[in-house]
Design a protein around this nucleic acid. Structure first.
Lengths: 227, 227
DNA sequence: CGTAGAATTGAACACTCTCAATTAGCGTGG
DNA sequence: CCACGCTAATTGAGAGTGTTCAATTCTACG
C-alpha cells in the first residue's frame, strides 16, 4: 500500500516504502530517517526540564503530558499528546518543558539535529516544521484565553470538547489522564474539575462509565457552556 | 554602513543596501521585498479577528496589542509588540487574533504570501520564519504557566521584569499601556494590577514618576516575588 | 474479595473580582 | 501659566468563585 503525497519529491522514495499521510512520517521519510521506537511506563519521565533537547518524538500509542513546574511544585500542563502527535520540538538545545508518560506509552523518536539539518537543506521539510510550530502556537494561544479569562465550568467544557475532537469525535471519551492532570492543564484544582464534571452529570450533559470514561450526551449544550 | 550577516547569500544583495541585523529585515531584503509603511493612531485597529491574514507587520515605533475576545467582552491579550517586534504571522488565511495600536504607532508590512513563497523557495527564509514561530511559541508557553498557576503579585512582578528586559533593561519603564491592558495580559482586573503595583511601591521595590512611568528600585526582590 | 489510589463531596477560607467613591494625571484652552 | 475637564488610576468595602483541608465513596486491579 502506497498512499499519495502532496509534495513533488515523492518519487525519490523507494516505491516499496510505506508512506502514511501523517506529516511527521512524511518528513522523516523525506529526510531518510528511521525513527527509534521506545517504551515508557505510566508516570515515567520521557525528558525533564533543562535537560538536553536531543530528540523529537511522536506518540505511537498511549498519552504524554508536557508541563512546566514552579519551585514550590505548582504545575502547568501545556499540552496532552495523543496517538500521532509530535512533541519535544524545542527551539534551543535545552528543554523548556518536561514530558511524562501518562499511561504506558510507546513513542518513536528522531534526532532533533537531523530534523534541523533536514529543514536547512530541504524546503519541504522546513515548511512542514514551520507549519507544525505554528499549529502548536495557535493551540497555546487558544489556551491562553482559556486560562486567563474563562470560568471553571467553561474550562472543563472546553476540555471535554477538545478531547472529544482529538480522541474519537464520537462523544465517547476514554480519558487517559487523572483529575489532577486535567486540573493542571486547566489551571484548576482536581476538586474543581470534579465538581464541574458532577454538575454536567446532574444536568444530563454527560454520563460516566467509570470515572475516566465519559460519554457526552449533549454536545450542543456543552458548546454553549464553553462560550 | 553595512553590517555583516550570518547567512551565505549576503553577497547577492547590492553593497549599497543598508542591512541591519534585525532578522525580519534580513528576511525581507533576502526575498527582495520593500515593506510598506503605515501609521495607526492610538486605539485604532490594525486588523480584526476573522479578517483576512494578508500582511505580516513589524513595529517601527509605538506599541501594539494582540488579543482574543469572548462574546461577552472578556479579553485576553496574548502579546504586546514593541519596536522591532514582528506580529501578524498567522498560520491560515484568517486572523485568529485582533491587533490594535496602543499608542500612535508606525508599522511596516509585507504580504504574507510573499513571505510564504520566500519560505518555500529559500531555505534561509524558511528557517528564519520557523525560528520566529518557535520563539513566539516559547513566549506563549511561559505565559501559560503565569496565567494558570501564578498569583496576582507574581504575575505583575513577571510583567515588570519582562517589560524591563524588552523596553530598556535599565529599570526605567515608560509603559505604553494602561492598567486595563496589563490586566488583560495577565488575566487580572485593572484594580488588582493597581493594588499589586501599590504594594510594590510601599515595599520600596519601585517608584512612580507618573502612573505610566515606573522605576524599578530592587529587581532582585522582584525576581523573588516572581518565583 | 480486599486494598490502595483516585474521585467525590462538604465546609470554611482566601484571593481576586465587582462596584463605588476618590484622587491623580494629562491635554486643552483661556 | 493656570484652570478646567476628562480619562486613568487608586483605594475601599463587600461579594463570589475557586481553593484548601478533611472525610467519604468509588473503582481498578491484584
Amino acid at each position: 500500500m502506497l498512499s499519495s503525497t502532496a509534495h513533488s519529491l515523492a518519487g525519490a522514495i523507494p516505491i516499496e516504502t510505506f508512506i502514511p499521510l501523517d506529516p511527521f512520517d512524511i518528513i522523516i521519510h523525506h529526510i531518510g530517517l528511521v525513527p527509534n521506537e521506545q517504551h515508557y511506563e505510566k508516570d515515567s519521565q520521557i525528558y525533564g526540564e533543562d535537560g538536553p533537547a536531543d530528540y523529537v518524538y511522536q506518540v505511537v500509542s498511549g498519552a504524554v503530558r508536557s508541563y512546566k513546574l514552579l519551585s514550590d511544585g505548582r504545575c502547568q500542563i501545556t499540552a496532552f499528546h495523543l496517538t500521532g502527535d509530535v512533541f519535544g520540538m524545542d527551539c534551543g538545545a535545552i528543554r523548556r518543558m518536561a514530558a511524562d508518560a501518562i499511561v504506558d506509552t510507546t513513542v518513536r523518536r528522531v534526532k532533533r539535529r537531523s530534523l534541523e539539518q533536514g529543514a536547512a537543506t530541504d524546503m519541504f521539510v522546513g515548511r512542514s516544521l514551520w507549519n507544525m510550530a505554528r499549529r502548536n502556537l495557535e493551540h497555546a494561544e487558544d489556551h491562553l484565553l482559556l486560562l486567563g479569562r474563562k470560568t471553571a465550568v467553561e474550562r472543563v467544557a472546553a476540555f471535554l470538547l477538545e478531547m472529544d475532537r482529538r480522541l474519537t469525535g464520537t462523544g465517547m471519551l476514554p480519558l487517559p489522564m487523572c483529575r489532577r492532570d486535567i486540573g493542571d492543564y486547566l489551571g484548576l484544582t482536581l476538586e474543581t474539575v470534579s465538581r464541574a464534571l458532577s454538575q454536567f452529570h446532574e444536568q444530563g450533559i454527560l454520563d460516566f462509565s467509570g470515572a475516566r470514561h465519559i460519554v457526552l450526551r449533549n454536545r450542543a449544550l456543552l458548546r454553549n457552556m464553553e462560550i
